[in-house]
Design a protein around this nucleic acid. Sequence first.
DNA 1: TCCCGGATAGAAAGCGCTTGCTACGGCTGT
DNA 2: ACAGCCGTAGCAAGCGCTTTCTATCCGGGA
Lengths: 354, 354
Amino acid sequence: MTVTLADVAARARVSPATVSRVLNGNYPVAASTRERVLRAVDDLDYVLNGPASSLAAATSDLVGILVNDIADPFFGIMAGAAQTEIGGPGDGSGRAGGEKLAVVCNTGGSPERELTYLTLLQRQRAAAVVLTGGAVEDPAHQAAVSAKLAKLADAGTRVVLCGRPPLPDGEAVVAALAFDNRGGGRRLTEHLLSLGHRRIGYVAGPLERTTTRHRLEGHREAMRAAGLVGDEERLTVHGPYDRRSGYDATLELLRREPEVTAVVAANDTVALGASAAVRDRGLRIPEDISVAGFDDLPFSVDAVPALTTVRLPLFEAGARAGRLAMGKETPPPGGIATIAAELMVRGSTAPPRV
Amino acid sequence: MTVTLADVAARARVSPATVSRVLNGNYPVAASTRERVLRAVDDLDYVLNGPASSLAAATSDLVGILVNDIADPFFGIMAGAAQTEIGGPGDGSGRAGGEKLAVVCNTGGSPERELTYLTLLQRQRAAAVVLTGGAVEDPAHQAAVSAKLAKLADAGTRVVLCGRPPLPDGEAVVAALAFDNRGGGRRLTEHLLSLGHRRIGYVAGPLERTTTRHRLEGHREAMRAAGLVGDEERLTVHGPYDRRSGYDATLELLRREPEVTAVVAANDTVALGASAAVRDRGLRIPEDISVAGFDDLPFSVDAVPALTTVRLPLFEAGARAGRLAMGKETPPPGGIATIAAELMVRGSTAPPRV
DNA sequence: TCCCGGATAGAAAGCGCTTGCTACGGCTGT
DNA sequence: ACAGCCGTAGCAAGCGCTTTCTATCCGGGA
């Protein structure tokens, strides 16, 4: 059989209550007693029964981090940073206490899975939940998520949004850290415009996501401000946030409008695919066509030529979200913070041929 | 207060036992009764209390997936695949049943964190644990991990290793899926040798990891077979599995031996850094120097020139590990399977200048 | 008509831990 | 010398669910 608290208590010749208190360190216990208990724990190789403990204490040390695609470094970086802050193991804190089990859950971008994970975390009475990445804009789903989050919140779970716009109906959450996707998108296109580009293709992400929409809106804002209107639909192709989609969409774009001098991709991964397509068509980057991405993932600087993109402080944002989830940092005023995006001009963009 | 089983029972005018049975679907309940219960559950928005349920049933639906670096697609891909198989939400199974909470835990490559996560999962009485990635070769740590896994195993947790060599002392695990890192490493170097390279630099991973050692051994095997011995130490530089390390190590390599005609990197990410270094030194790939990687991550085919590398079926392996963890697939004979690595020759390698 | 077995439902005993409250010395203050 | 405290430890009552065992209701065979 597995060892229980009672076994430890017996061996240390104290009551179970005392063992519990030693383990939790939240009640005065004489040093000598503590010593004895700790030795017994060691001798017996005792491991606390998590479920029992959570049940009795009505709390749990689970913290969930939801991501859309765990194979995408965009999410990996945020999740890793958050997990580090949440501490899980080895958070430096001497011993017990902040020891949380930070786990990441991969929704694969599916609204249903997102909801199911939230329910599962609710079941487990998670201490906190961090949702990363853009939300799906289906009203029904948004309502469902909001409701779920509200329920989680008033069951005591701390909810933090990271890289995700605030909930429409406000404050069911501890904090929302939103990236300035629109501003970044605008500045990126302004950069292209200032180089002299006029026919700019846009490879957008999946239609119904906030991230997609905001980046695209920023782009169009800039185009409109430059007086370039009318071609929006023709020069935009939607697709998933992956390399393949960037490749295909760019080919399509080039077919629709052979005169494009620049392609803006919804993110760096897509930009990689776009670059491949451009090259496969026998065109040079940036001499014939400029290519730009978004996110500034680590590999972007190593692309050839280095990718012009918009840097999002993913690590910092993830870490901050982690801290907020742990209550180690005070939320921004109003619970909402917008995180700036920084334009990174590199070799993949240049003035168009004359 | 939160809704409990008893509340649902009251509303459905049945006993708590019946509600439990409806929810678990493991006991005959009259259709009409079931209906009534389900409606009550819905009306009250009832969510099962996970800890209580786990405590009473002495089981849990948590499945842990340990990874070394969540921001690295190498792990992301495996973890994602495993998570999909484990089902977590939306595994297609009509309703309850296989509904497991698959979570990934990021050890950051630290042995202590690995151990702590295992303990935490043990606390939670995890249904299964999947360990991915190479192990650290410190004997003390290996012993500790083995002991932990043994304990987990006989507490009923299914343990699966994925991309990790079998435990030295044998069968504490359901199955071990090991990549043929040695064979892959050997074939990669043989390819270079067959192109005519003789002075080949090797940018290795961190010293004490099995993955690092096996790949390096494969490389040296090939070199030795070609009669190239003596320069091993001078032509090998160790460092972490990241881009930066590849960059620095390659610079160092070029300093030590300006005559190298090829650089083999421990993995694709490192190869990216290596390529950057080569270019920054004003050398062309592959005309002046060939560069090769390992893993065949998605971005490798988009590198310029496309990266010659060794393909590891990460997705398939992860999925299989997930299935094994769920008991959906029978383990390979002896519990050990070696997964083949396939050489992918692309543009980054070519014969050396004459 | 009576009895028995199958199909359902309920009662109740925990699962292993936490925690409010009580108990018990030995000190201090008067 | 006695009352009152502080510092510790134990008692015991749950936390919300699962599951064994028992009770009940029905229909059918004898």
